[in-house]
């Protein structure tokens, strides 16, 4: 009997990309539950029963105070232990847009930059941020992204992918030069904004003024990914702004591979491991 690949799509007040996130994982055969944080905090539902934690985009708590802050605190202060165990168990986490902001502000990303140490020994500590775009406004636009580094989530992607961003606070800033060097050294930079040809971007190709044009990062293991652009919005070929008139090689769009990677990792690693262990 096939074992279920279980994905928890986390939601709370103001989450709004949960439907398309769930659809993306379900497409590849995962079983997805969209769960309100309240149920996790009350232990009605347990994180350990899932293989992938997916934090979708939206405006949790209205982006009040700053984007992601309130849910990040809830995760850090009320589910910290569960999360640490989840990570320890080599399970996957993905945060898109507001989900990325939450992971960064909870200190889950970039996490501990020292490969030797387990990332939650000292608890989660914020070491970077995502702040107001240089343009000073929310923008929904399509961006080209160079795929860098190697990780569970990003393998088999084309070298340059095309995803839309839709955010007001997507400018990545590390706390210090050390953090930035660590990210580079560990190959934790997963996506950078680039020109259509893959070259150095200028605004609006880099839509927010991010340091080193960073659009997405992983933790040291590559099992936790956060990115501002929305791969789930280029899930189907026809989601692209320029699909019409292009040759259709695949019914899926550039973003689908990421979700496929997540599901396949669980199938090939976590579920098969359990048999052998």
């Amino acid at each position: 009997m096939e074992k279920h690949i279980k994905v928890l799509v986390l939601r709370t007040a103001g989450t709004n990309c949960n439907g398309e996130m769930a659809n993306a994982f379900e497409h590849f055969g995962a079983q997805v539950d969209q769960v309100h944080i309240k149920r996790l905090r009350q232990h009605e539902i347990l994180l350990k029963d899932y293989h992938i934690l997916a934090i979708p985009g939206g405006f949790t708590y209205g982006d009040d105070i700053e984007s992601g802050r309130i849910l990040a605190n809830e995760l850090r202060l009320h589910l910290g232990k569960d999360l640490a165990q989840f990570i320890q168990d080599k399970k996957l986490i993905i945060g898109i847009c507001n989900g990325f902001q939450i992971l960064v502000k909870a200190g889950i990303l970039p996490g501990n930059l020292d490969k030797g140490q387990s990332s939650m020994e000292e608890g989660f500590k914020q070491s970077s941020t995502l702040t107001n775009n240089d343009s000073g406004k929310f923008e929904d636009r399509w961006t080209y992204l160079k795929v860098a580094g190697e990780s569970v989530w990003t393998k088999n992607l084309s070298p340059v992918v095309y995803f839309p961003v839709a955010h007001a606070e997507g400018k990545f800033i590390p706390m210090s030069e050390d953090v930035l060097q660590g990210l580079k050294h560990n190959q934790q930079i997963a996506f950078t904004y680039c020109s259509a040809q893959g070259g150095e971007p200028v605004y609006p190709e880099n839509p927010n003024g991010s340091t080193l044009h960073i659009a997405g990062i992983t933790d040291v293991t590559g099992r936790i990914l956060g990115l501002m652009p929305h791969p789930e919005r280029h899930f189907y070929f026809e989601n692209s702004p320029n699909w019409n008139g292009q040759a259709k090689k695949n019914k899926l769009g550039d973003g689908a591979q990421i979700f496929k990677n997540g599901v396949e990792y669980v199938r090939n690693t976590l579920l098969s491991n359990r048999v052998t262990e």
Partner: peptide, 17 residues
């Protein structure tokens, strides 16, 4: 551009193409 015109993931023909 200030409006999210793609949330919910079903965008096929956008305002700008």
């Amino acid at each position: 551009r200030q409006y999210d015109h793609e949330v919910q993931g079903g965008s096929i023909i956008k305002p700008l193409v």
